[in-house]
């Protein structure tokens, strides 16, 4: 087996040479993850805002469910989506299994509870501050949700990035529903798992380095957003 330094050098060479296979995998990973996060935000932001800004029967039960779902095991989600999309499943007719769309569905299911639960907390804290002012102004329910979502925009960007971090590093669900098919559903995490098992450590490490770089960029963005928000006293 090659030394770690030799593997590392070859991995870096793979990255800087813009290897087409590597680029394809990165692009697909980002496409799947960003689409899933966008879908999760479209569902999770309003859902979290409604739970955070309104009182209704069984609200505590809903919050417990949302918080519990944050810890959904990815392989269980993968299995459930697989059962739904497989030929004998209720949505088998759509023929989505082993496609990027199936991976997006699985990641959306994984990330939505995270986005919704964190949004609920952010919105509830903000609403506790605004409640009397909103009541005094006579803010209508829809306006309340929209205003809270807008005023929490910086915190919600952080929430979205947290969802992105979870989705981009996920492997269990996407490998079950995507099948890790070369040039079709192969993403960074599934490639790392596969290539490591095959002993192709250069490619695995190259993709690992790229994942780490993405994590650094996401955290850098988070810090920048927090800094901007803090300067405007928006957090």
């Amino acid at each position: 087996m090659e030394s770690f330094s030799a593997i590392l050098i070859e991995a870096v060479e793979l990255i800087v040479s813009w290897d087409p296979d590597v680029i394809e995998i990165i692009v697909l990973s980002l496409r799947v993850t960003l689409t899933a996060v966008a879908a999760a935000c479209l569902i999770g932001f309003p859902l979290g805002a409604i739970v955070g800004a309104f009182r209704f029967p069984m609200r505590n039960g809903v919050i417990v469910a949302m918080n519990t779902l944050m810890g959904l095991p990815p392989v269980v989600v993968g299995l459930l989506v697989y059962l739904m999309l497989s030929a004998s499943g209720p949505m088998g007719v759509l023929g989505l299994l082993y496609t990027p769309t199936a991976m997006i569905v699985a990641q959306t299911i994984l990330v939505t509870p995270i986005v919704a639960a964190l949004t609920r907390q952010v919105i509830e804290d903000l609403y506790n501050e605004y409640a009397e002012q909103f009541a005094s102004l006579g803010v209508r329910p829809l306006d309340r949700v929209l205003a809270l979502l807008w005023d929490a925009r910086y915190s919600l960007l952080t929430v979205a990035l947290a969802g992105f971090g979870r989705a981009v590093a996920e492997v269990g669900a996407v490998i079950i529903v995507g099948g890790n098919i070369n040039h079709v559903t192969r993403v960074m995490t599934t490639t790392i798992a596969l290539e490591t098992s095959k002993g192709n450590l250069q490619l695995a490490l190259a993709l690992g380095l790229i994942l780490l770089t993405i994590a650094v960029i996401v955290n850098g963005l988070l810090m920048a957003i927090r800094g901007t928000a803090a300067r405007a006293a928006y957090v």
């Binding site: 501050e129 605004y130 009397e132 002012q133 005094s136 006579g138 005023d151 929490a152 006293a233 928006y234």
Partner: peptide, 15 residues
């Protein structure tokens, strides 16, 4: 309440 308004001791400023 649409014809009323209130100012609180601690002003609530929207972000």
């Amino acid at each position: 309440r649409q014809e009323q308004a209130m100012v609180f001791q601690r002003p609530v400023m929207l972000r």
